[in-house]
Design a protein around this nucleic acid. Structure first.
Lengths: 146, 146
DNA sequence: CCGTATCCATTCCGATACTG
DNA sequence: CAGTATCGGAATGGATACGG
Protein backbone atom coordinates (compact mmCIF):
# COMPACT_ATOMS: atom_id res chain seq x y z
CA UNK A 1 0.00 0.00 0.00
CA UNK A 2 0.99 3.63 0.11
CA UNK A 3 0.71 3.27 -3.62
CA UNK A 4 0.49 6.57 -5.38
CA UNK A 5 -2.93 6.81 -6.93
CA UNK A 6 -2.91 7.47 -10.65
CA UNK A 7 -5.08 10.27 -11.92
CA UNK A 8 -5.22 8.87 -15.44
CA UNK A 9 -8.71 7.51 -15.01
CA UNK A 10 -10.00 10.40 -12.99
CA UNK A 11 -13.25 11.73 -14.40
CA UNK A 12 -11.96 15.29 -14.31
CA UNK A 13 -9.82 16.40 -17.23
CA UNK A 14 -7.84 18.72 -15.02
CA UNK A 15 -6.75 15.79 -12.91
CA UNK A 16 -5.72 13.85 -15.97
CA UNK A 17 -3.62 16.77 -17.13
CA UNK A 18 -1.85 16.90 -13.84
CA UNK A 19 -1.05 13.26 -14.15
CA UNK A 20 0.73 14.02 -17.42
CA UNK A 21 2.30 17.45 -16.98
CA UNK A 22 1.86 18.04 -13.27
CA UNK A 23 5.37 17.44 -12.08
CA UNK A 24 8.13 19.88 -11.49
CA UNK A 25 9.74 19.72 -14.92
CA UNK A 26 7.32 18.80 -17.68
CA UNK A 27 5.85 22.24 -18.22
CA UNK A 28 9.26 23.84 -18.03
CA UNK A 29 10.57 21.52 -20.71
CA UNK A 30 7.53 22.35 -22.78
CA UNK A 31 8.05 26.05 -22.20
CA UNK A 32 11.63 25.73 -23.41
CA UNK A 33 10.46 23.78 -26.42
CA UNK A 34 8.17 26.66 -27.32
CA UNK A 35 11.16 28.92 -27.19
CA UNK A 36 12.90 26.79 -29.74
CA UNK A 37 15.07 24.46 -27.67
CA UNK A 38 15.46 21.03 -29.18
CA UNK A 39 18.56 19.31 -27.98
CA UNK A 40 19.11 17.33 -24.82
CA UNK A 41 21.97 19.54 -23.79
CA UNK A 42 20.03 22.71 -24.43
CA UNK A 43 17.26 21.63 -22.11
CA UNK A 44 19.75 20.45 -19.59
CA UNK A 45 21.59 23.71 -19.53
CA UNK A 46 18.47 25.83 -19.51
CA UNK A 47 16.79 23.93 -16.71
CA UNK A 48 19.78 22.99 -14.62
CA UNK A 49 18.20 19.62 -14.07
CA UNK A 50 20.05 16.39 -13.55
CA UNK A 51 20.51 14.46 -16.73
CA UNK A 52 18.85 11.32 -15.52
CA UNK A 53 15.74 13.26 -14.57
CA UNK A 54 15.66 15.07 -17.86
CA UNK A 55 16.08 11.77 -19.61
CA UNK A 56 13.08 10.18 -17.94
CA UNK A 57 10.96 13.32 -18.33
CA UNK A 58 11.64 13.51 -22.03
CA UNK A 59 10.79 9.86 -22.36
CA UNK A 60 7.54 10.43 -20.51
CA UNK A 61 6.67 13.30 -22.79
CA UNK A 62 7.44 11.22 -25.86
CA UNK A 63 5.30 8.43 -24.53
CA UNK A 64 2.48 10.84 -23.80
CA UNK A 65 2.56 12.06 -27.38
CA UNK A 66 3.51 15.57 -26.37
CA UNK A 67 6.95 15.53 -27.92
CA UNK A 68 8.50 13.51 -30.69
CA UNK A 69 11.96 12.68 -31.91
CA UNK A 70 13.28 14.29 -35.03
CA UNK A 71 16.58 13.78 -36.81
CA UNK A 72 19.00 16.53 -36.00
CA UNK A 73 18.49 19.61 -38.11
CA UNK A 74 22.19 20.33 -38.35
CA UNK A 75 23.19 16.97 -39.71
CA UNK A 76 24.74 15.73 -36.50
CA UNK A 77 24.10 12.18 -35.46
CA UNK A 78 21.88 13.06 -32.56
CA UNK A 79 18.20 13.51 -32.26
CA UNK A 80 16.06 16.46 -31.36
CA UNK A 81 12.93 16.76 -29.30
CA UNK A 82 10.11 18.78 -30.73
CA UNK A 83 6.52 19.32 -29.73
CA UNK A 84 3.81 17.40 -31.51
CA UNK A 85 0.57 19.18 -32.44
CA UNK A 86 -0.88 17.81 -29.21
CA UNK A 87 2.03 19.32 -27.35
CA UNK A 88 1.78 22.63 -29.10
CA UNK A 89 -1.79 22.94 -27.93
CA UNK A 90 -0.41 23.25 -24.44
CA UNK A 91 0.63 26.72 -25.45
CA UNK A 92 -2.46 28.19 -23.90
CA UNK A 93 -1.69 26.45 -20.64
CA UNK A 94 1.84 27.77 -20.54
CA UNK A 95 0.68 31.20 -21.54
CA UNK A 96 -2.00 31.34 -18.88
CA UNK A 97 0.55 30.38 -16.26
CA UNK A 98 2.89 33.01 -17.60
CA UNK A 99 0.27 35.70 -17.46
CA UNK A 100 -0.79 34.79 -13.97
CA UNK A 101 2.80 34.68 -12.83
CA UNK A 102 3.57 38.04 -14.36
CA UNK A 103 0.57 39.54 -12.68
CA UNK A 104 1.00 38.05 -9.24
CA UNK A 105 4.49 36.73 -8.72
CA UNK A 106 6.53 39.72 -9.75
CA UNK A 107 7.29 42.75 -7.71
CA UNK A 108 7.73 45.19 -10.53
CA UNK A 109 10.34 46.02 -13.08
CA UNK A 110 11.72 42.86 -14.57
CA UNK A 111 9.54 42.38 -17.58
CA UNK A 112 10.33 39.24 -19.45
CA UNK A 113 9.50 38.27 -22.98
CA UNK A 114 6.18 39.40 -24.37
CA UNK A 115 4.17 37.59 -26.94
CA UNK A 116 3.58 38.99 -30.40
CA UNK A 117 1.94 37.97 -33.64
CA UNK A 118 4.65 36.87 -36.01
CA UNK A 119 2.93 38.48 -38.96
CA UNK A 120 1.77 41.83 -37.70
CA UNK A 121 4.14 42.18 -34.78
CA UNK A 122 1.22 43.23 -32.62
CA UNK A 123 1.22 42.30 -28.97
CA UNK A 124 -0.98 39.43 -27.97
CA UNK A 125 -3.35 40.41 -25.26
CA UNK A 126 -4.33 38.84 -22.01
CA UNK A 127 -6.44 35.74 -22.33
CA UNK A 128 -10.11 36.44 -21.88
CA UNK A 129 -13.32 34.50 -21.70
CA UNK A 130 -15.93 34.81 -24.40
CA UNK A 131 -19.17 33.13 -25.25
CA UNK A 132 -19.45 31.27 -28.50
CA UNK A 133 -20.74 34.41 -30.17
CA UNK A 134 -17.77 36.45 -29.10
CA UNK A 135 -19.18 38.28 -26.12
CA UNK A 136 -16.76 38.98 -23.29
CA UNK A 137 -17.44 37.31 -19.94
CA UNK A 138 -16.14 38.32 -16.56
CA UNK A 139 -14.45 35.64 -14.52
CA UNK A 140 -17.12 35.88 -11.88
CA UNK A 141 -19.83 35.04 -14.36
CA UNK A 142 -18.36 31.77 -15.49
CA UNK A 143 -20.09 28.85 -13.85
CA UNK A 144 -20.08 25.15 -14.48
CA UNK A 145 -23.13 23.50 -15.86
CA UNK A 146 -23.25 19.82 -15.05
CA UNK B 1 24.44 19.66 -2.15
CA UNK B 2 21.40 17.84 -3.29
CA UNK B 3 19.52 20.92 -2.20
CA UNK B 4 16.28 21.34 -4.05
CA UNK B 5 16.54 24.51 -5.99
CA UNK B 6 13.70 26.93 -5.42
CA UNK B 7 12.05 28.37 -8.45
CA UNK B 8 10.77 31.40 -6.55
CA UNK B 9 13.52 33.64 -7.85
CA UNK B 10 13.59 32.19 -11.32
CA UNK B 11 13.37 34.91 -13.96
CA UNK B 12 10.60 33.06 -15.78
CA UNK B 13 7.08 33.58 -14.49
CA UNK B 14 6.09 30.08 -15.53
CA UNK B 15 8.73 28.65 -13.26
CA UNK B 16 7.55 30.78 -10.37
CA UNK B 17 4.02 29.53 -10.90
CA UNK B 18 5.17 25.96 -10.76
CA UNK B 19 6.88 26.68 -7.52
CA UNK B 20 3.52 27.74 -6.09
CA UNK B 21 0.95 25.50 -7.73
CA UNK B 22 3.10 22.90 -9.39
CA UNK B 23 2.58 20.01 -7.06
CA UNK B 24 0.14 17.20 -7.29
CA UNK B 25 -2.67 18.75 -5.28
CA UNK B 26 -2.69 22.53 -5.40
CA UNK B 27 -4.49 22.93 -8.69
CA UNK B 28 -6.97 20.25 -7.79
CA UNK B 29 -7.79 22.00 -4.56
CA UNK B 30 -8.20 25.21 -6.52
CA UNK B 31 -10.39 23.46 -9.06
CA UNK B 32 -12.61 22.21 -6.27
CA UNK B 33 -12.73 25.67 -4.77
CA UNK B 34 -14.03 26.99 -8.09
CA UNK B 35 -16.77 24.40 -7.91
CA UNK B 36 -17.83 25.77 -4.56
CA UNK B 37 -16.12 23.52 -2.06
CA UNK B 38 -15.09 25.30 1.10
CA UNK B 39 -14.72 22.94 4.00
CA UNK B 40 -11.76 20.81 4.96
CA UNK B 41 -13.82 17.68 4.85
CA UNK B 42 -15.31 18.51 1.48
CA UNK B 43 -11.89 18.83 -0.08
CA UNK B 44 -10.73 15.73 1.66
CA UNK B 45 -13.60 13.65 0.40
CA UNK B 46 -13.45 15.04 -3.10
CA UNK B 47 -9.74 14.54 -3.51
CA UNK B 48 -9.22 11.39 -1.53
CA UNK B 49 -6.05 12.88 -0.19
CA UNK B 50 -4.55 12.15 3.21
CA UNK B 51 -5.58 14.72 5.78
CA UNK B 52 -2.08 15.72 6.69
CA UNK B 53 -1.25 16.44 3.08
CA UNK B 54 -4.40 18.45 2.61
CA UNK B 55 -3.61 20.34 5.76
CA UNK B 56 -0.19 21.42 4.61
CA UNK B 57 -1.37 22.19 1.08
CA UNK B 58 -4.14 24.43 2.36
CA UNK B 59 -1.67 26.16 4.60
CA UNK B 60 0.66 26.71 1.66
CA UNK B 61 -2.16 28.16 -0.41
CA UNK B 62 -3.13 30.46 2.43
CA UNK B 63 0.44 31.57 2.77
CA UNK B 64 0.72 32.17 -0.97
CA UNK B 65 -2.32 34.42 -0.86
CA UNK B 66 -4.32 32.15 -3.11
CA UNK B 67 -6.87 31.16 -0.50
CA UNK B 68 -8.07 32.75 2.67
CA UNK B 69 -9.92 31.73 5.78
CA UNK B 70 -13.52 32.75 6.26
CA UNK B 71 -15.84 32.15 9.16
CA UNK B 72 -18.19 29.30 8.45
CA UNK B 73 -21.19 30.34 6.42
CA UNK B 74 -23.51 28.01 8.29
CA UNK B 75 -22.70 29.28 11.76
CA UNK B 76 -20.67 26.27 12.76
CA UNK B 77 -17.50 26.77 14.71
CA UNK B 78 -15.21 25.80 11.87
CA UNK B 79 -13.60 27.80 9.17
CA UNK B 80 -13.88 27.73 5.43
CA UNK B 81 -11.30 28.08 2.70
CA UNK B 82 -12.14 30.36 -0.18
CA UNK B 83 -10.19 31.74 -3.08
CA UNK B 84 -8.83 35.25 -2.90
CA UNK B 85 -9.01 37.47 -5.97
CA UNK B 86 -5.47 36.40 -6.75
CA UNK B 87 -6.60 32.80 -6.51
CA UNK B 88 -9.65 33.35 -8.66
CA UNK B 89 -7.46 34.64 -11.42
CA UNK B 90 -6.10 31.15 -11.71
CA UNK B 91 -9.38 30.31 -13.34
CA UNK B 92 -7.88 30.71 -16.78
CA UNK B 93 -5.13 28.30 -15.87
CA UNK B 94 -7.53 25.68 -14.65
CA UNK B 95 -9.76 26.21 -17.64
CA UNK B 96 -6.93 25.90 -20.12
CA UNK B 97 -5.89 22.65 -18.51
CA UNK B 98 -9.46 21.46 -18.63
CA UNK B 99 -9.83 22.26 -22.29
CA UNK B 100 -6.59 20.61 -23.21
CA UNK B 101 -7.48 17.56 -21.19
CA UNK B 102 -10.89 17.30 -22.77
CA UNK B 103 -9.36 17.54 -26.18
CA UNK B 104 -6.48 15.16 -25.72
CA UNK B 105 -6.98 12.94 -22.72
CA UNK B 106 -10.44 11.62 -23.34
CA UNK B 107 -11.40 8.80 -25.65
CA UNK B 108 -14.91 9.94 -26.44
CA UNK B 109 -18.26 9.99 -24.76
CA UNK B 110 -17.88 11.05 -21.17
CA UNK B 111 -18.42 14.75 -21.37
CA UNK B 112 -17.97 16.47 -18.08
CA UNK B 113 -19.17 19.85 -16.93
CA UNK B 114 -19.20 22.65 -19.46
CA UNK B 115 -18.75 26.27 -18.70
CA UNK B 116 -21.52 28.77 -19.18
CA UNK B 117 -22.16 32.44 -18.64
CA UNK B 118 -24.22 32.79 -15.50
CA UNK B 119 -26.29 35.57 -16.97
CA UNK B 120 -27.04 34.48 -20.48
CA UNK B 121 -26.52 30.78 -20.04
CA UNK B 122 -24.46 30.72 -23.19
CA UNK B 123 -21.59 28.31 -23.47
CA UNK B 124 -18.14 29.74 -23.01
CA UNK B 125 -15.95 28.95 -25.94
CA UNK B 126 -12.48 27.59 -26.25
CA UNK B 127 -9.77 30.00 -25.23
CA UNK B 128 -8.20 31.76 -28.17
CA UNK B 129 -5.38 34.17 -28.80
CA UNK B 130 -6.06 37.68 -29.95
CA UNK B 131 -4.04 40.77 -30.53
CA UNK B 132 -4.79 43.83 -28.50
CA UNK B 133 -7.20 45.01 -31.16
CA UNK B 134 -9.18 41.83 -31.07
CA UNK B 135 -7.81 40.03 -34.07
CA UNK B 136 -7.58 36.25 -33.83
CA UNK B 137 -4.12 34.68 -33.92
CA UNK B 138 -3.23 31.10 -34.74
CA UNK B 139 -1.06 29.30 -32.22
CA UNK B 140 1.69 28.95 -34.79
CA UNK B 141 1.92 32.69 -35.22
CA UNK B 142 2.56 33.51 -31.59
CA UNK B 143 6.22 34.17 -30.96
CA UNK B 144 8.12 35.61 -28.07
CA UNK B 145 9.71 38.98 -28.42
CA UNK B 146 12.60 39.43 -26.06
C1' DC C 1 27.86 15.55 -27.27
C1' DC C 2 24.12 12.32 -25.80
C1' DG C 3 22.34 9.73 -22.92
C1' DT C 4 22.07 5.64 -19.17
C1' DA C 5 23.12 3.68 -14.63
C1' DT C 6 24.02 4.05 -9.88
C1' DC C 7 24.05 5.90 -5.29
C1' DC C 8 22.29 8.79 -1.83
C1' DA C 9 19.55 12.61 0.25
C1' DT C 10 15.29 14.80 0.41
C1' DT C 11 10.73 15.35 -0.35
C1' DC C 12 6.14 13.72 -0.93
C1' DC C 13 2.41 10.83 -0.01
C1' DG C 14 -0.81 7.49 2.25
C1' DA C 15 -2.57 5.23 6.37
C1' DT C 16 -3.56 5.51 10.88
C1' DA C 17 -3.87 7.06 15.50
C1' DC C 18 -4.95 10.83 18.24
C1' DT C 19 -6.67 15.52 20.22
C1' DG C 20 -10.24 19.01 20.65
C1' DC D 1 -15.95 17.59 11.94
C1' DA D 2 -11.38 19.66 11.80
C1' DG D 3 -7.12 19.20 12.14
C1' DT D 4 -2.12 17.42 14.07
C1' DA D 5 1.48 13.78 14.86
C1' DT D 6 3.95 10.02 13.39
C1' DC D 7 5.62 6.39 10.56
C1' DG D 8 7.07 3.87 6.48
C1' DG D 9 7.29 3.56 1.66
C1' DA D 10 7.55 5.61 -2.89
C1' DA D 11 8.89 9.02 -5.99
C1' DT D 12 11.94 12.67 -7.03
C1' DG D 13 16.16 15.11 -7.42
C1' DG D 14 21.32 15.89 -7.48
C1' DA D 15 26.00 14.31 -8.36
C1' DT D 16 28.80 11.60 -10.73
C1' DA D 17 30.65 7.82 -13.31
C1' DC D 18 30.35 5.49 -17.43
C1' DG D 19 29.51 3.88 -22.45
C1' DG D 20 28.05 5.10 -27.37
Amino acid sequence: MAKRKSLKEDPCPVARCIDVVGDRWALLIIRDAFEGLRRFGEFQKSLGVAKNILSTRLRDLLHAGIMEIMPASDGSAYQEYVLTPKGRELFIVVLSLRQWGEGHLYQHGERCATLVDRKSGKTISRIELRTSDGELIALEDAVFKK
